[in-house]
C-alpha cells in the first residue's frame, strides 16, 4: 500500500473517515473527526474495551493519552499536509479528572510550526469544555523531504 498518496488524498479530500482508517490504532480507538467553524473536533465514542476501571467505571489513562496523541498527530498531518506520519518526539499528559464511561472530545492547538519541529497542545473533555479531563503537550518531528 502506498501511504503517501493515500494520506494526502484523504487530507485533500477532507475524508476524515479514510484518514483515521490509515492510522490503525486511532481506528481501533474509534476516533471520529468533524470540521467546525472553530477548527477540527476529535471524538472518541465510549466502548467497554476502553475502560481501565470497570467498577467506577473510568477510562484507561493510556486510552485517553492515545486518543489525544492521535488527535495531535492527525491535526499536524492535516495542517502541514504531510506525506508521511509525523514522528512523535516526546509526549506529556496531565490528568485533571477521571475519564467517565462516555464519549471524549478533544481540540488541538498547534503552538509552533517550525520547519522540522511542531509543538502541539491538546485539551480533552467530556461534558463541558470548562471541565477538562486531561491536557497534553507534545513535539513532532517532520520529514523535510522524502
Amino acid at each position: 500500500m502506498n501511504d503517501k498518496s493515500e494520506l494526502l488524498k484523504a487530507v485533500d479530500a477532507e475524508d476524515y473517515l479514510q484518514l483515521v482508517s490509515l492510522v490503525p490504532y486511532a481506528d481501533y480507538l474509534g476516533m471520529k473527526i468533524n470540521r467546525h467553524t472553530s477548527g477540527l473536533q476529535y471524538l472518541m465514542p465510549f466502548r467497554e474495551a476502553l475502560l481501565g476501571n470497570p467498577v467506577l467505571p473510568s477510562l484507561h489513562g493510556g486510552v485517553i493519552a492515545g486518543f489525544m496523541e492521535n488527535a495531535a498527530l492527525i491535526e499536524v498531518l492535516i495542517k502541514q499536509r504531510q506525506n508521511r506520519i509525523p514522528k512523535p518526539v516526546d509526549f506529556s499528559i496531565d490528568y485533571l479528572r477521571p475519564g467517565r464511561a462516555q464519549q471524549c472530545q478533544a481540540r488541538v492547538e498547534v503552538v509552533r510550526e517550525g520547519k522540522r519541529i511542531v509543538l502541539a497542545r491538546v485539551d480533552c473533555w467530556q461534558d463541558s469544555e470548562d471541565a477538562l479531563i486531561a491536557q497534553v503537550r507534545m513535539h513532532f518531528l517532520l520529514e523535510e523531504s522524502e
Partner: peptide, 27 residues
C-alpha cells in the same frame, strides 16, 4: 497485532500503544 500500528507504510507501532502499555506497567 495489526491494530497497534500507527504508520503502516513503515510498519511502526502507534505512540498510543506505548502510552497504554507504559501507564499499565507503572500502575
Amino acid at each position: 497485532q495489526s491494530f497497534m500500528l500507527g504508520n503502516t507504510r513503515h510498519n511502526l507501532i502507534n505512540g498510543g500503544v506505548i502510552s497504554s502499555l507504559v501507564d499499565t506497567a507503572c500502575g
